[in-house]
């Protein structure tokens, strides 16, 4: 900082030799690297570090902005959250939602990528584009389309299947309906990631396997699948992180209903924060979600690491 001022003062002086040396000094201080790093650190402190700190602090307060309340309560919010039945129900719903969405996303994504990368299939670019359509369309719009498709009166799903199910109003079918919509929306992303992974597979290993007389299934089990593990891990982890945070499809399609049957953890936080204005409770929940996300991510990296060694 003193350097900057010093050279700025000097630069103001008329002596020409001094000016050029001052300029060089300024040039050395205001490099692309320094500007980028300093701005990043400042930006990070203001828009990331400080909010994270505030969230932790807020979770220890009875905090309601509508009545201007911010009172220290220690760990009361956490105790309340962890003894709240709805919190655990939402957590369970989130687990179910994430598990099935990820499972189908991975299996469908891999199967389609294998097919699309085989020589047997024609019109690959068109097919890839079609499968990718749902992924590149906005979630709010797509949630509406599916809400209408599930409509028992005019929705096309009941009309096609001949069923008479009130999908989003029936506690047995509401969560499966949201999961179906999520799988439909997201499998294309996994397909594209797997396609990229398959493109990068080494050809010679496959030639060797062919010479050894390995059949398709053996090749798939012992070569393709293990080599694609980094891709699978990437998909599972990014999916998990995003499904733990999913709320838009719930907000649009079911509003957590019927009753509280499709409450997920992030929808519950949304509900607490921006419908009930219990900022303290919502902050405590978000801290728990943050810790949970971190633990699950690390566990998954660990688990996958152990497998490779075995």
């Amino acid at each position: 900082m003193t350097n900057v001022n010093h050279s700025a003062v000097r630069a103001a002086q008329p002596a020409s030799g001094e000016v050029s040396s001052a300029r060089r000094m300024l040039g050395r201080i205001f490099t692309m690297r320094n500007i980028a790093v300093v701005s990043l650190v400042v930006y990070f402190a203001v828009f990331m570090a400080y909010p994270i700190f505030s969230a932790f602090a807020g979770s220890l307060h009875d905090w309601n902005p509508l009545i201007d309340k911010y009172d220290w309560v220690g760990f009361d919010n956490f105790v309340n959250v962890l003894t709240d039945g709805l919190f655990w129900k939402s957590l369970w719903n989130t687990a179910i939602y994430s598990f099935f969405s990820i499972l189908f996303r991975v299996v469908l994504g891999l199967a389609l990528a294998l097919l699309l990368s085989s020589k047997l299939v024609k019109c690959k670019d068109t097919l890839r584009g079609l499968f990718y359509m749902p992924t590149i369309t906005p979630l709010v719009a797509v949630s509406f389309v599916w809400m209408w498709m599930f409509d028992p009166q005019f929705g096309m799903i009941d009309k096609i299947t001949g069923l008479d199910i009130s999908w989003l109003n029936d506690s047995r079918y509401a969560m499966p309906a949201v999961i179906i919509m999520t799988i439909w929306k997201d499998f294309g992303y996994a397909t594209v990631l797997y396609l990229a992974g398959i493109m990068a597979l080494p050809r010679d290993v496959y030639e060797a396997a062919q010479i050894d007389g390995a059949n398709w299934w053996q090749t798939f089990r012992s070569i393709t699948l293990p080599l694609l593990k980094p891709t699978t891990l990437l998909i599972v982890i990014t999916s998990l992180i995003s499904y733990l945070q999913a709320y838009v499809q719930i907000l649009v399609m079911t509003k957590g209903g019927p009753g509280t049957d499709t409450y997920t953890i992030s929808y519950l936080i949304y509900d607490q924060a921006f419908q009930k204005y219990n900022f303290g409770t919502a902050s405590a929940m978000s801290v728990i979600l943050f810790v949970l996300t971190g633990i699950l991510t690390i566990l998954m990296f660990k688990a996958s690491g152990d497998n490779t060694e075995a």
Partner: peptide, 21 residues
């Protein structure tokens, strides 16, 4: 360290920062 911090924002739930922001 700085790169790690930037990367870790990818697993930061929106729910954590949205109220303070």
């Amino acid at each position: 360290v700085l790169f790690g911090a930037v990367l870790s924002t990818m697993m930061l739930p929106w729910a954590v920062t949205i109220i303070p922001q």
